[in-house]
């Protein structure tokens, strides 16, 4: 297990390297500038890309659900969030998970 602690420390450091680099470089950035506008676009796009990939081409535990199940789960989450409730995150998330769970249970 000592090996895994080393692995974890390295993964933590690798993640922190991005964070620290951002904090370091941010001192030269003006929040009103064009560079700032571009970087925020990249930030949103990276996050959206990661989540889209998790939903369209998942790995690990999520890969045990089918694309249709994940698509319908997402529709249930969005529907509960936007239509059934007034932007209640908890309701949306639970609706999505419950939909996938029910589909797995009965199909």
């Amino acid at each position: 297990m000592a090996e895994f602690w080393v692995l974890l420390a390295l993964c933590g450091l690798a993640t922190y390297a991005w964070r620290a680099l951002g904090a370091r470089l941010s001192s030269g950035i003006d929040a009103e500038s064009e560079v700032f506008a571009w970087i925020s676009c990249v930030a949103y796009a990276m996050i959206a890309g990661l989540i889209a990939r998790m939903l369209v081409m998942p790995t690990g535990a999520l890969a045990e659900t089918t694309l249709v199940e994940r698509a319908l789960g997402s529709v249930a989450a969005l529907g509960a969030y936007f239509r059934l409730t007034r932007h209640n995150l908890l309701a949306g998330v639970f609706a999505g998970a419950a939909a996938v769970w029910l589909m797995k249970l009965h199909l």
Binding site: C11, A14, W18, G22, A23, A31, I39, A43, M46, L50
Partner: peptide
């Protein structure tokens, strides 16, 4: 493993770059 985790965490660079100035 370390490389894959590092690359998956790349989003923290633009995220901190945007948030810290604010």
């Amino acid at each position: 493993i370390v490389l894959t985790v590092a690359l998956s965490s790349a989003r923290f660079l633009p995220m901190t770059l945007v948030l810290v100035p604010l």
